[in-house]
């Protein structure tokens, strides 16, 4: 059985990404233990993948009108809408020797917690390669990963009650991508646990399911802890990167 420090947290997008990066760095020098962090974006935020362009992936007029911030992640993958009242993000910061070497296998291994959490709440979730969690063929979770200095950072979403109307209006998907999936609109591709089970799941239930799900999936003893001074200080320094226009608009 492995031990994982459990952090339950909330913050704005820049803080959340800065803290994930800070934890990756600090884990690489053994300043912190292997950690599972479950967190909420407050306010609701869009994060885009490291290789994406804001203009290609986000409906900028819509998000400006709704004052939804956009933050570039340090990890690849696609654009995500993190709904304060409908989504919990997980990040796992763990030494590389504890996860499969193969990237797609490791996406699946580390995402098993969200799959189990959805099943605990009554939805028949499955992992769909490369990096999605699906319920009845529709996506409720996506994962992204970065590896540095012998440490893996994987973070991903758990859409338990996301406002999918805001999601589909905020995000752009290239027509080529939608065509390949045989759908005309993004809304056909996404689902939340609440939509499937037919009732509104609340945050507390979602959190409890994720804790149980990850504990079982990783055969882990989760020990609730708090962030150290050095984590908070490093995150505070890194936050400027995630707030900067140069980082956010890195790719035209």
């Amino acid at each position: 059985m492995i031990k994982l420090r459990l952090i339950i947290d909330e913050g704005d997008g820049a803080y959340n990404m800065a803290l994930d990066e800070a934890m990756l760095i600090l884990r690489s020098v053994n300043a912190i233990p292997d950690t599972l962090r479950l967190y909420v974006f407050k306010p609701s935020t869009i994060t885009i993948g490291y290789f994406q362009s804001v203009s290609e992936s986000v409906n900028e007029d819509f998000v400006k009108s709704r004052r939804i911030p956009v933050v570039r992640r340090p990890t690849g993958g696609g654009a995500v809408y993190h709904d304060t009242y409908g989504e919990i993000t997980y990040s796992i910061i763990i030494s590389e020797d504890k996860v499969p070497k193969d990237y797609v296998e490791s996406f699946k291994f580390l995402a098993e917690g969200v799959i189990r959490a959805a099943r605990i709440l009554g939805a028949p979730a499955e992992f769909k390669p490369l990096n999605d969690g699906v319920i009845a063929g529709k996506k409720f979770s996506g994962q992204a990963q970065l590896r540095r200095l012998g440490v893996v950072l994987q973070h991903g979403t758990f859409m338990y009650a996301t406002d999918t109307d805001t999601l589909v209006q905020s995000l752009l998907a290239p027509k080529l991508k939608l065509m390949h999936k045989g759908v005309k609109a993004m809304k056909e591709r996404v689902i939340t646990v609440s939509i499937y089970v037919g009732r509104k799941i609340n945050r507390d239930e979602a959190l409890k399911a994720l804790i149980k799900g990850f504990s079982e999936a990783l055969n882990a003893k989760l020990i609730e802890g708090s962030l150290t001074k050095v984590e908070l200080q490093l995150a505070s320094s890194l936050k400027w990167k995630y707030l900067s226009k140069e980082w956010t608009y890195l790719r035209p």
Binding site: G49, Y50, F51, Q52, S53, E56, S57, T75, G76, G77, G78, A79, Y103, N131, A144, Q145, L146, R147, R251, P252
Partner: peptide, 15 residues
């Protein structure tokens, strides 16, 4: 030259 997308690359800096 601008290379964008929703893929992953390791190490990402190589792109």
């Amino acid at each position: 030259i601008v290379i964008t997308g929703d893929f992953f690359a390791y190490p990402p800096e190589n792109i």
